[in-house]
Simulated scan of single mutants.
Amino acid sequence: MTLPAAEEQARRFARVRLAHRTEMQEDYVELIADLIADGGEARAADLAERLGVTPATVANTLGRLKRDGLIEMRPYRSIFLTAEGAGMAARSKERHGVVVRFLGVLGVPDEIAETDAEGLEHHLSGETLEAMRRFADERDRGISPNGTGAT
């Protein structure tokens, strides 16, 4: 393997490691935003139930989210997103929606598309997401991927 190829491979692996680090943050802030939107509040017990993890796992993760400036919380109170956390949640929800929509255009059933999007949304580049969005938009307008009117 040549040096430039090795550097390129290292860059790709570094990008994947970064996606893995932010994946949990994105899942948590997106769920917190959904809970607040649905019921007016987000509680640690709700997060544990929805994520299928222990309360201790949620407590540890919430501590990291607070340290990273994504949430605010006080004992025996609801969890609130900071402006940075709300922005991350909105971006994550948007990415999720693009992936679900794209998979739906490909004919993937809704339930499977939702499940698959949970992993994909964190690892796709902005360029890939934009291509997926364009493809879905074109299909919605009746334009085939090769630019003709037939789908």
Rank of each mutant, 00 (worst) to 15 (best):
R50N: 11
A42Q: 00
R64D: 00
N60P: 03
A56F: 01
V29W: 01
A89D: 12
I36A: 06
D27Y: 09
E72F: 13
S92V: 02
A19W: 07
R101A: 03
Y76F: 10
D27I: 12
R101E: 06
E26Y: 11
S125M: 10
A136P: 02
E8D: 12
T151H: 14
T54P: 00
T82Q: 01
E30N: 04
E49Y: 09
E49A: 15
L35G: 03
V100T: 03
V105W: 07
R15V: 10
T22Y: 06
L62H: 09
E84T: 04
T115P: 01
T151P: 08
G52R: 00
L120A: 11
G149R: 04
I32T: 04
G119Y: 12
M88W: 07
E23Q: 04
A89W: 08
F13Q: 05
L18K: 06
I143E: 00
A5D: 06
L103N: 04
A83P: 15
R91C: 13
G63F: 04
G39V: 09
E23D: 07
S78W: 01
L129R: 08
V108G: 00
H96R: 14
R139Q: 15
M132V: 13
V99K: 00
L103F: 14
E127M: 09
V29C: 01
L81T: 04
E127W: 13
D110I: 03
I71L: 00
R95Y: 07
V100W: 12
L31V: 04
R101I: 01
D38Q: 08
V98R: 15
T2N: 13
E30R: 12
A37D: 13
L129C: 15
E41D: 07
R95S: 05
A131W: 08
G63L: 02
L106Y: 05
A150F: 14
V53T: 14
T82P: 08
R91E: 08
T148Q: 03
I79T: 02
L120T: 08
R21D: 00
E121R: 04
L106W: 08
G85Y: 13
G149A: 06
L31P: 02
G142A: 03
H123M: 04
A131Y: 06
S125P: 13
E26C: 14
H20Q: 02
M132N: 08
D34S: 09
V100L: 08
S144N: 11
A14F: 09
S125H: 05
D137M: 08
H122Q: 03
Q25M: 11
L62K: 03
V16D: 04
T115I: 14
N60K: 10
A48E: 00
T82G: 05
P109G: 02
Y28V: 13
A89E: 05
D68W: 14
